[in-house]
């Protein structure tokens, strides 16, 4: 299990705590929004007090930061509200400082918050994956190009998409008077933080400014409405597809079965292939590369005509034990 279903949670209801983990400088306070009990990966609202200074550093985790209030300096870069950065594991970032204090959303995607002072990248760190943008000033709002899509009046700015998992980080907004009369669920976990504004969902009621959720896959949410509009930050840990329906009482396992049934209708060839392979360890899940699928007779002995080794005595659990899984 990764993170609990935390929905709804309003961070304004709880006080900041002092960050006490090794390496972090005095003047960093946080509110925990959600945490993975196995890895320590987490999402926090973080307050840096005026005068806070952090020397150049790396983290042993992918890190995402969204500036929400005040300004902090990242080296020579002034990070005003809306500034977003994705820092891959092991990539060194310049010194962080703030003269008057600031608030940010801070996410450690792989493990607990950690920091090592260093002005050099770790060996093998993927600096090409570094993203930095002022999402408020430099990016236009876009109509989501999902099928099916939300009602008009919900717009997004995609900040990051993971090439392998299609996990997304994005800003979204709802215009005043927005409403959408359906119930939605997704195949991926979804997370959101309300930077400003209140929205309503039929299951959870109002989610105001400072409202947050971490929602595992296949959980109903909606109908939706927002009287005065919303500005929010969201993330998924996989492909975001809207499954719309109107049965208010369905539970996640039932929704998952609906998706399997839909797959049979929408992608009959893929569904047939999945169902007729007769085993549950397609090799493309085992790190052999994305473009390679092995093929052999499944009635006979298991043989491979390629150069790799993996232990066939172990038990596969439909892809959950191997490959690049959900990690947030």
């Amino acid at each position: 299990m990764a993170r609990r279903h935390i929905e709804p949670f309003v961070d304004r209801d709880v006080p900041f705590k002092r960050m006490t983990l090794p390496g972090f400088k005095r003047g960093m306070n946080y509110k925990m929004l959600s945490i993975d009990k196995d890895t320590g990966a987490c999402t926090m609202t973080v307050q840096l007090e005026g005068g806070y200074r952090q020397p150049p550093s790396i983290s042993m985790s992918d890190v995402e930061i969204l500036s929400m209030k005040g300004t902090f300096m990242l080296g020579d870069q002034a990070c005003t509200p809306g500034y977003y950065t994705f820092i891959p594991n092991g990539v060194s970032i310049p010194a962080i400082s703030t003269a008057r204090g600031c608030e940010v959303l801070l996410m450690y995607n792989d493990r607990e918050p950690n920091i090592i002072e260093s002005d050099q990248d770790a060996t093998g760190a993927k600096r090409s994956g570094l993203i930095a943008a002022n999402s408020y000033d430099d990016m236009p709002w876009q109509v989501p190009n999902l099928f099916p899509a939300t009602e008009p009046g919900c717009l997004i700015k995609v900040l990051r998409m993971d090439e392998e998992t299609q996990a997304l980080s994005f800003l979204y907004c709802m215009v005043p008077g927005f409403w959408q009369d359906n119930i939605s669920f997704h195949d991926c976990a979804e997370e959101a933080y309300h930077i400003w504004g209140t929205s309503w969902m039929m299951q959870f009621g109002n989610l105001p400014t400072g409202g947050y959720f971490w929602r595992p896959p296949y959980i109903n949410h909606g109908a939706f409405a927002s009287e005065h509009g919303v500005l929010a930050f969201g993330r998924t840990d996989g492909t975001l597809h809207n499954h719309f329906h109107f049965h208010a009482h369905t539970e996640p396992d039932e929704n998952q079965k609906k998706v399997a049934k839909k797959l049979a209708k929408h992608s009959p060839g893929l569904f047939k292939w999945v169902m007729t392979q007769g085993h549950n360890h397609p090799d493309f899940l085992h790190g052999h590369g994305p473009d390679w699928v092995h093929s052999h007779e499944h009635g006979g002995p298991h043989s491979h005509d390629h150069d790799h080794a993996h232990d066939h005595g172990h038990g596969h659990d439909q892809g959950k034990g191997h490959g690049k899984g959900r990690k947030k």
Binding site: R53, P55, P56, I58, M60, S61, N89, G90, D110, R111, I116, E117, S118, D119, Q120, D121, A122, T123, G124, A125
Partner: peptide
Amino acid sequence: MATKKRAVSKSAVKARAK
């Protein structure tokens, strides 16, 4: 403030993390 110049190997990072 002096900065520690310390390169950390990615494999060590991954091993510790995972």
